[in-house]
Computed example of a mutant assay.
Amino acid sequence: MPARTLNATAASLLGFLHEGPMSGWDLVATAQARIGDFWSLTQSQVYRELAAMAADGLVEAHERGRRDRRPYAITDAGRSAFTAWVTRAPEPEAIRFPLLLTIMFGRHVPAERLAEIVAQHRATHAARLAAYEQFETELPPGAAEAEPYAVATLAFGLAYERAMLAWFAGLPPAIRGD
């Protein structure tokens, strides 16, 4: 058992390491590509967690490779800790949506600036939806059976972005700048 309880960042790194050894740089890139739209990791967090997990025996560092990158591999203890983490009931999500905070205090923001901020965020969500829809069209036949977990995550992303765009469309004109 690890000396500390795994947090979601450490657990996600262990999840990625199930696929094979990766350097901290590889883990950052993998996390940004695969979970970056719904879970953020910084480079400093990744290296801090790798050092802590190595000290706890959850990962082991290999010899430095190209570009002086040190790959890490998950250990049996790391697999056990990951299994314990991933099979527990997750905590309820906490919404931290900075745009909502800005809108909450929108009466203190010039109307043109608020409309500009809302438009920028709407464009971000529209672009993300377009990317998810493109990814969905590129799924091979049978993907839902072969990769139900990734497909379910994609389905959430699609539903979320569609809901966000509907929310933007339903904002009062004073907020949208109409």
Rank of each mutant, 00 (worst) to 15 (best):
G106H: 02
G157S: 09
A174Q: 14
T30F: 01
T9W: 00
F38V: 15
W167T: 13
Q43A: 07
T102P: 00
I35F: 03
R162F: 01
V109Q: 03
F135C: 11
F97T: 14
A94C: 07
A143E: 08
V46Y: 00
E112K: 04
A123F: 01
T9K: 11
L100R: 06
T102F: 04
A3F: 02
A155F: 00
H18L: 15
L27I: 03
E93D: 10
Y160Q: 15
A127F: 01
L27K: 02
G20T: 07
E19S: 14
E49C: 12
E112V: 15
A159D: 13
L50R: 08
G65V: 10
D178S: 12
A146I: 12
L99E: 06
A143I: 06
V151P: 13
M53T: 09
W85P: 03
R67Q: 13
L171N: 06
A3R: 11
A123M: 04
A10C: 05
L50E: 03
E63H: 04
L171K: 06
G78E: 03
A169K: 01
V59G: 00
A130K: 04
F16W: 05
A89F: 01
A119T: 12
A169H: 02
T124L: 13
L58C: 11
I74T: 04
A52V: 13
R176F: 03
L158A: 05
R67H: 13
I95M: 04
Q45Y: 02
E112S: 09
R48S: 11
G15S: 14
G20I: 12
T5N: 05
G142F: 05
D56W: 10
E145G: 04
V109D: 01
R122L: 05
A81H: 06
F168D: 07
A54F: 00
F38Q: 11
D37W: 09
P21A: 10
A111Y: 00
R79M: 06
